[in-house]
């Protein structure tokens, strides 16, 4: 594929909200010339088996991601703070489904 359009077309991230889901979850990514076509490609690639009722597409370049270098300062401090989990409460009798 010489001069492949996908080499020039921007990458889009696809988020799909499933029939029973409350929020959109990341489904994958694809190439498309613009947002309208990205939506249509997403429909064809990620909702063929009726996985979704709503689609978002976001230009991959617009996503600001945390860097692997920042992993320790970002995430490690929370590892030894179990008291942040609500596991230290005695559950009153009569409370079900908690």
């Amino acid at each position: 594929m010489s001069g492949s359009p996908s080499a020039e077309w921007p990458l889009w991230e696809v988020f799909v909200r499933s029939r029973r889901g409350l929020s959109h979850t990341h489904a994958g990514s694809l190439h498309a010339p613009d947002a309208e076509m990205a939506l249509r490609n997403a429909r064809d690639l990620y909702t063929r088996r009726s996985e979704g009722v709503s689609i978002w597409v976001v230009p991959s370049a617009e996503i600001t991601a945390s860097s692997p270098d920042e992993r320790d300062p970002f995430f490690e401090p929370s590892a030894d703070k179990p008291y942040r989990h609500p596991t230290f409460y005695a559950i009153p009798e009569g409370v079900r489904h908690l």
């Binding site: 594929m1 492949s4 359009p5 996908s6 077309w9 694809l30 190439h31 498309a32 249509r40 490609n41 064809d44 690639l45 063929r48």
Partner: peptide, 12 residues
């Protein structure tokens, strides 16, 4: 097809 995404669209 010119691109994979379009190939899937046409096949659909």
């Amino acid at each position: 097809a010119p691109v994979l995404e379009e190939e899937v669209a046409l096949a659909n």
